[in-house]
């Protein structure tokens, strides 16, 4: 059984992003990038499923320009068997990405599509659900536990009230939450081996995907800043201050 895992190259989660002064976006040039942390969790889960004998092949897929090849090499170092690079230089919105992933999923006849629940750049949290909708297959979002058994998967999901467990027939989409697993540290031999693994390129045109109308960003600004408050020395001082504001 084959799994398709989507991975996205994003500004590293430790970088404090800066908004460009002309309001045209955030500074991404010369800024450290890495694989979206939720996608690392998706890769790790796929590798663990393969180690348990539930999967026979893992295919990593990404959409983006030339630099995204690094992200696919990282996925291959995690343990993907091969990778597909959907080459696209422009901005790609979730439904368009989902159409491309759905096309690859069908072509590959993969039974699982595993993706991070959101990318930490646009924080959209949409693509996995859209892939499931386009193919009319099951979705199990925000997964914190995944068990695959034959043509079914049992997934525990992190929802607002607590933990929900659902059972889905395969093929299915699973999106990963933070506590699903702790991604492994990549070892040098695996990174070296990844350089020799197959990496194929394709395009939206090859996949029959035409980007439709999308949202147009007209302005990007920094958030309103909270001004630094006061430091109090004692609990009495704190209580007095909060009482004076009518908060206690």
């Amino acid at each position: 059984m084959k799994a398709l895992v989507s991975v996205k190259r994003v500004v590293d989660y430790n970088v404090r992003v800066q908004v460009k002064s002309d309001g045209s976006g955030v500074v991404t040039d010369g800024v450290k990038h890495s694989m979206n942390p939720f996608d690392e969790i998706a890769m790790e889960e796929a590798v663990r499923l393969k180690e348990k004998g539930k999967l026979t092949e893992i295919v990593a897929v990404t959409i983006g320009g030339a630099k995204n090849e690094e992200t696919l090499r990282t996925a291959l170092a995690f343990g993907a068997d091969r990778a597909i690079h959907i080459k696209e230089e422009g901005e790609v919105q979730p439904l368009t990405a989902a159409k491309a992933f759905a096309a690859v999923l069908k072509k590959e006849d993969a039974k699982l599509f595993i993706a991070g629940k959101q990318a930490i750049d646009d924080d959209a949290n949409q693509t996995g659900q859209m892939v499931a909708a386009l193919l009319d297959i099951a979705q199990a979002t925000f997964a914190s536990k995944v068990e695959v058994d034959g043509n079914k998967a049992t997934v525990t999901r992190e929802v607002d009230a607590g933990l929900e467990t659902i059972e889905v027939d395969l093929p299915a989409v699973i999106t990963t939450d933070l506590r699903l697993n702790e991604p492994r540290y990549l070892k040098l031999p695996d990174i070296m081996k990844a350089k020799k693994k197959p990496l194929d390129a394709t395009t939206f045109a090859d996949l029959g995907v035409t980007p439709g109308a999308g949202f147009k960003v007209t302005k990007t600004v920094p958030p309103p800043t909270r001004s630094k408050g006061v430091m109090v020395k004692t609990v009495d001082e704190l209580v007095a201050a909060l009482k004076a504001k009518g908060l206690l």
């Binding site: 439904l95 949409q126 659900q129 909708a133 999901r157 439709g212 109308a213």
Partner: peptide, 23 residues
């Protein structure tokens, strides 16, 4: 924009063939 909305809204948008706006 709860777990409920985030789970369902993209699936609805894709069925309607429109992009979705989050948050």
């Amino acid at each position: 924009g709860t777990a409920f909305g985030k789970d369902i809204a993209p699936r609805v948008a894709a069925k309607l063939d429109v992009q979705q706006l989050s948050d």
